[in-house]
Design a protein around this nucleic acid. Structure first.
Lengths: 172, 172
DNA sequence: CGATGCGTTGATCGGTATCAAGGGGGGTGG
DNA sequence: CCACCCCCCTTGATACCGATCAACGCATCG
């Protein structure tokens, strides 16, 4: 699923993607406005807030776990702010591919031809770019033999070291 | 204080500012790299991790509080991602001034000539802009009679409604 | 077979970065 | 007490990256 915020005129910022087993809507106050939308077939499991909170009270370690998750998300958000505020288009795409690669590896899914479930427009709205720039940057990386597009949604990372150095802001 | 992340070549993104009574370094894993630096005279109170965690165990409501704080920060981070990814320079400055104004009001400090403790360079690194653009945008808002610069670090917001509509992406 | 949506590519525009210069205020040393 | 210096801020000129506008290919689906 994609999590996003909108401006009145329709500009959109995707603030994150959710994968299987991720949680949604944990903030206690219902005052934080954002939207969520499935990008692949999705099954959702709903908890009633009251019952969920009772559960937390009965199992304090669960609450610790949630705090850990929140902190992880916070760290990811800070990384994304660095990306959005200071990285070039090429660096953003490289960071994005690397993140997908690592996430897939951590989750035990195929990590090198990396599977990209979202379309170009979603990628753009996640990275603060237009779809055209996303497309052009993929083409550029392809021509430089850094990646190979096996299909629109499956990309092989040919040189992880180079991708990493680009993502970190060294590789021009 | 300012919290920031750096790229190897020195590009900097300030991911947030801390005010009196805010906490720092709560993430359990010490694996998240970021820096913090005081921008005004600062007194810091240090807790030993072990003792702090014991405290949390003894007072579960404290842990709930921390979870709430983390969620608030997460919401703020998402708002900032929207700003960094999709807002224009003018919209970013307007959002920034509005946020300082609301924060000051919530903390019972002077909120209309709003006090700006950080310098232009810090503001730029927080909003993903250059110092020159920050300066030019202040000038622009001043010429439009939307704000008045009573000093470099004290700005009067002359029309909150207009500022809000700019910040939300309506006011051109 | 036409319609529709997504992705790519090309041409041009514009907003912000960058490069450069100068002003002002506060602190320090003579 | 004054002069100098340094840092921060502002302003101007120019460059460039990415957005925007536009057209087209391609696949999917009705």
């Amino acid at each position: 699923m994609k999590i996003y915020k909108l401006l009145p005129d329709g500009r959109r910022q995707i603030t994150g993607f959710l994968f299987a087993s991720d949680f949604l809507g944990l903030a206690q106050a219902s005052t934080y406005a954002y939207s969520a939308e499935a990008i692949t077939r999705t099954d959702v499991c709903r908890f009633r807030r009251k019952e969920f909170e009772d559960l937390l009270d009965r199992f304090p370690r669960l609450e610790k776990k949630l705090l850990g998750v929140a902190n992880d998300e916070l760290a990811a958000a800070q990384e994304q702010m660095l990306l959005l505020g200071r990285k070039s288009a090429k660096e953003r795409i490289a960071s994005f591919l690397l993140a997908l690669n690592k996430k897939a590896a951590r989750c035990g899914r195929s990590s090198n031809p990396v599977w990209i479930p979202m379309n170009r427009s979603d990628i753009g709205d996640y990275l603060g770019l237009s779809t055209e720039t996303v497309s052009r940057t993929f083409t550029e990386l392809k021509l430089a033999r850094i990646v190979a597009l096996e299909s629109n949604s499956k990309i092989r990372l040919l040189d992880l070291d180079v991708i990493e150095s680009i993502a970190d802001g060294n590789g021009a």
